[in-house]
Design a protein around this nucleic acid. Structure first.
Lengths: 259, 259
DNA sequence: CGCGGAGTTGAACGCATTCAAGTCTTGTGG
DNA sequence: CCACAAGACTTGAATGCGTTCAACTCCGCG
């Protein structure tokens, strides 16, 4: 795994021109430390945030203070379109590792909405993909047993990062603790630990030091019963992923597809 | 519980004029029988559907064919904005009871988007509320034990229907079987049955013949650890609900607030 | 040196699943 | 009219997956 930089976050949704247009509206980068709160539940939101680097998590605590992780946001995500449109969030948004966000003031996006409604439609599209991811999390937590939940979650993270050119097909950064992972998958930290041990002992994958290393990608997909139709990645990426899973993909494939 | 008709589905989002504008674009009503598929996974969607009466469910099957219910749509919901914007759905949409939908052809909504971008923004808002509901389902299934999951789910259904004037505060229609309920709450039908028996024996609520009758609303909310901030109902309804929970609400309150 | 957070492992418990049998209702055909 | 099948709901008993409680290691840091 190597550190890679984010080129185009939404290749199948935004044209380069649109991405540039949105980028130009953004304010200066703001950094957040690990565990720092980015947006607080119920607080008024006055700008739309773009996650230019790092990972963020959406949390809802239960009555006893134990948290459920509702979503993991990766670099290139627009992390508070819900807050922007609805006025406030119904949950907390925290930095997972080190995070850099850039905000677009409310008024600028409203102005853009008048002069280029097409871009707003694209943002709508982006938030609907987020919703599709939410629905898939419901499926994952509701139907899959523990080990499959973890495997399935890793598969999603792999593809979402891979789709942005942020990792290869064998490893990726994931700045979560085992407690975070457990909160994401709806289980206890102890059990998450045991399921990770199983995957490790089977030689499927490891999770340590904020990164996942996958030795057997097809096995991970199989264990997690993973499908990625809900990510709406587009036909090119879809084919590419299927080729890699079939073992016929090499690094040249990616470059060829991108060119 | 009495049969009630849907007046204004989105009082806090759409103005009456906007609701009328959208209604005028809609095609003729189409009816679906219970269990009939409304939109099939991966099929092209060419019109945006409005659920004018009845309930619909979004489903994703696992590898063994067992299903997870991802969302329940109630009268007044726009049930395939995701399909409309993304081109197809990543899951199935089935009628739960008897259903009537009205479709808005793709082109008409695109035309509306040019002449009245404000309405499109409102539709965006509606789909973001849907996403907030999805997130809450993740919380419910991931963090709550069985009995609380059922109670919590009933609370959500109660408020979503109450907010549309489709029920009082003591009972509501819910055309699901116990199997459906189990699929919605991520548990087995047998266990759903036992949890329902507990709630019944405690005198909290009953679920039979496609309807929920609630004897002790505050107890139901307490057992389900329910909060409804994620529904974005608006300040008026919010106050009204809190009053009813505190036992100070009577039927006159509702009328006064609506006038 | 001691503290705290993160990870690991063992053992006991219990919630939920699984398997199974039974009732009740509904609809269908003899 | 009754026999029968199918689906929804209910209940009992055994199993097991996941939780809970607890102890311990490792490591970074004050």
């Amino acid at each position: 795994m190597s550190e890679m930089t984010l080129q185009q976050a939404w290749p199948d949704v935004l044209t380069p021109a649109e991405a540039q247009l949105l980028s130009d509206l953004q304010g200066p980068p703001e950094t957040f430390r690990p565990r720092q709160q980015i947006v607080r539940c119920a607080q008024p939101v006055e700008s739309a945030l773009y996650l230019s680097s790092g990972f963020a998590g959406r949390y809802r605590p239960d009555r006893l203070g134990r948290r459920q992780l509702l979503a993991v946001q990766v670099p290139g995500d627009y992390v508070d379109l819900p807050g922007f449109v609805l006025g406030h969030l119904d949950h907390d948004l925290d930095a997972l590792g080190q995070v850099v966000v850039r905000g677009t003031p409310y008024e600028r996006l409203q102005a853009l909405e008048r002069q280029a409604p097409g871009v707003v439609h694209k943002l709508w599209r982006i938030s609907l993909i987020d919703a599709a991811v939410h629905r898939y999390w419901i499926f994952r937590i509701g139907r899959l047993p523990g080990r499959a939940r973890i495997a399935n979650f890793f598969c999603e993270m792999l593809l979402r990062l891979y789709a942005r050119g942020l990792c290869g097909f064998d490893a990726f950064q994931l700045p979560l603790s085992q407690v975070d992972l457990a909160e994401a998958c709806g289980m206890t930290p102890v059990h998450a630990n045991r399921m990770l041990a199983e995957l490790r002992d089977e030689g499927v994958c490891t999770f340590a030091e904020g990164a996942v290393h996958i030795a057997k990608v097809p096995a991970l997909f199989q264990i997690g019963q993973y499908t990625w139709d809900y990510l709406y990645l587009g036909a090119d990426l879809d084919r590419e992923i299927r080729q890699r899973l079939a073992g016929r993909g090499d690094s040249a494939t990616r470059v060829a597809a991108a060119g």
